[in-house]
């Protein structure tokens, strides 16, 4: 089983290609959104082919709709298979969310209730993905703004049961933990204490937007700003607990110069290094 190196990476943006090629290799890996590389050819594939020679690669899907009530789109799944065959990524990940309905793709990671029915749906879909791709996948915890009255399981219990049933790993997005817990007025430390950390194969760190509503803070998972301080703290606490894990800096809107992303990656790297020293001593 392949896995990402226990170092830092960034979400690759095509505008950073030249700068990245001119930068001495400071990153352990890069991550790309699978759907951006589903064309037949052209510059996107030329760039990814060149980068694949230098970096470990994480392919991160945003359109499979694993939490959808409808069957998975077989064409899309086959495209993912082709992509994984072509680039042999070190990791493939997707989201605990749904994004398609009635043949329409909604381009957002939408929430689902957590109960016995949805658990079966999600597990069946993950089995299908892992069988089709012939590899273990990582499932990412979502950022959410609402919950469902019909939920009978906590998100952490839901994820624990998924990993037990399917054998998949987890992509722990600590910004998502902070965003969801703040929105739902729950304690992110309690969430992380309940999270099946043993299954974590990668960590995501990204920025969020904040709004103060009369009903309390509303955090939005916008990926357009630096990682917030409380998220760094939760990250450091988690790494000290579980040891170094592959860590990705995500920045998808208002993308700044590459150096800004590399500085964020350096900050994560220092925390990983600290954990290595603490474990060695």
């Amino acid at each position: 089983m392949t896995q990402l190196p226990e170092t830092t990476g960034i979400g690759f943006k095509r505008t950073h290609f030249d700068a990245l090629r001119q930068t001495p290799n400071r990153l352990g890996f890069i991550e790309v959104h699978a759907e951006n590389y589903m064309g037949d050819g052209g510059p996107p594939h030329a760039q990814l082919t060149a980068l694949r020679e230098e970096y470990a690669l994480s392919v991160h899907g945003v359109g499979l709709s694993i939490g959808g009530a409808e069957p998975l789109d077989r064409e899309h799944l086959n495209r993912l298979k082709q992509l994984c065959n072509r680039y042999a990524p070190d990791s493939f990940s997707e989201h605990l969310a749904w994004s398609s309905h009635g043949g329409a793709f909604l381009n957002d990671l939408l929430p689902l209730p957590y109960d016995a029915t949805t658990l079966t749906v999600v597990c069946d879909h993950i089995d299908q993905v892992q069988d089709t791709l012939g590899r273990r996948m990582l499932l990412e915890n979502p950022s959410t703004y609402v919950t469902f009255e019909t939920s009978t399981l906590a998100e952490t219990d839901f994820l624990t049961q998924i990993t037990a049933r399917t054998g998949c790993g987890l992509l722990l997005d600590i910004n998502n933990v902070f965003v969801s817990c703040t929105n739902h007025r729950t304690d992110p430390r309690a969430y992380l204490a309940d999270f099946p950390l043993h299954a974590v194969g990668e960590i995501h760190l990204g920025g969020h937007d904040a709004e103060d509503l009369p009903s309390g803070p509303l955090l939005i998972d916008a990926h357009g700003s630096p990682v917030a301080d409380p998220v760094w703290t939760l990250y450091a606490e988690t790494i000290m607990r579980i040891g170094p894990r592959a860590t990705l800096i995500e920045w998808d809107t208002d993308v700044p110069a590459l150096s800004v992303l590399l500085d964020e990656a350096d900050r994560a790297d220092a925390i990983l290094e600290g954990a290595r020293h603490a474990r060695a001593s």
Binding site: L106, D108, Y145, T147, L213, S215, G216, L218
Partner: peptide, 22 residues
Amino acid sequence: GVTAVGDVARRFSVYRNTVAHS
């Protein structure tokens, strides 16, 4: 069946805005 800690309409609208804007 969709709920939130206060102001559920505003919180649900985050999804609506993201779909439309993206």
